[in-house]
Computed example of a mutant assay.
Amino acid sequence: MFAERTGYIVWFSDTKAARGLDKYGTLHYVSRKMQYAVLYMNADVAEEAVKNLQKLPYVRKIERSYRNEIKTEYEKDTQDKARFYNL
Score class of each variant (00 low, 15 high):
L21N: 01
D22Q: 11
D22I: 04
Y24Q: 04
G25P: 05
L27Y: 06
H28V: 15
Y29H: 14
Y29P: 04
V30D: 01
S31D: 14
S31Y: 00
S31E: 09
R32I: 07
K33P: 02
K33I: 12
M34V: 14
M34Q: 15
Q35L: 15
Q35M: 14
Y36L: 14
Y36A: 08
Y36P: 13
A37W: 01
A37N: 08
A37I: 05
V38Y: 13
Y40L: 07
Y40F: 14
Y40G: 05
M41Y: 04
M41W: 08
N42L: 02
N42V: 06
A43P: 12
A43S: 14
A43V: 11
D44Q: 11
D44S: 13
D44K: 11
D44V: 08
V45E: 10
A46F: 00
A46D: 05
E47R: 01
E47C: 00
E47I: 04
E47W: 00
E48R: 04
E48H: 04
E48Q: 13
A49I: 04
K51T: 09
N52H: 10
N52K: 15
N52L: 11
N52M: 09
L53G: 08
L53I: 06
L53E: 10
L53T: 08
L53A: 05
Q54S: 09
Q54W: 04
